[in-house]
Amino acid sequence: MTLDQGLILDGLTITLGDRRLVALSLAIRGGEVATIMGASGSGKSTALAAITGTLPPEFRRTGRILLNSKDISDRPTRLRGVGLMFQDPVLFPHLSVGGNLAFALPAHVTGRSARRLRIDAALASAGLEGLADRDPATLSGGQKARVALLRTLLAEPKALLLDEPFSRLDADLRAQIRRFTFDRAKAAGISTLLVTHDVEDARAAGGPVLSPLGETLPL
């Protein structure tokens, strides 16, 4: 793997009025998890919005975002190949668990049975066998979190962004889901950027830890 593979933030700065919220230069190789840490309101989520392409118009961005050596800075969100996990699972409430996963499955997986097989296999790989027809609202918190991650990964993203995805989970569940998420991202070989205010999350990520303004933070 060459150096320009993975997610690269090339002098990415974001300002709101006179205030500079984000200033990052960072290369995350495939399978690596980098962390941006800071208090709430420090611009962590703004950085993620810039990478997904959902930055509100009042923010100003300079610098480039490269993914596998392509400049994706101005592409529409859906064409960036960047997956995103929120604090909440944000499952589509009107679709079944299987329907949620099918929504993410790329169109190149054709045929009903082939798609169904992929979904069942994904569920089985996460210990969620037989839940395809369930209402997502009836799942436990841990199950929802795993379905959300499966959904994100089924879309075959080239980079994964995690926006404090563990902060709403109970303490015992937290470590388990965190491990599950990082293992999956590493196994898929994709660049992962975690945003958190929790030192434990940053430690578990095992990669570089930066503030939104680019300072390296000690753990």
């Binding site: 392409g53 995103l84 944000v90 409430p93 994100t152």
Partner: peptide, 27 residues
């Protein structure tokens, strides 16, 4: 309507039309 649904769907590769017809309208 929860805008995060649209963001989540867009990062999954869904077009605006698909988000409208498959998610927003049914919801």
């Amino acid at each position: 309507w929860d805008g995060r649904i649209a963001t989540a769907a867009a990062t999954l590769g869904a077009s605006e039309a698909r988000i409208f017809w498959r998610l927003r309208l049914p919801m």
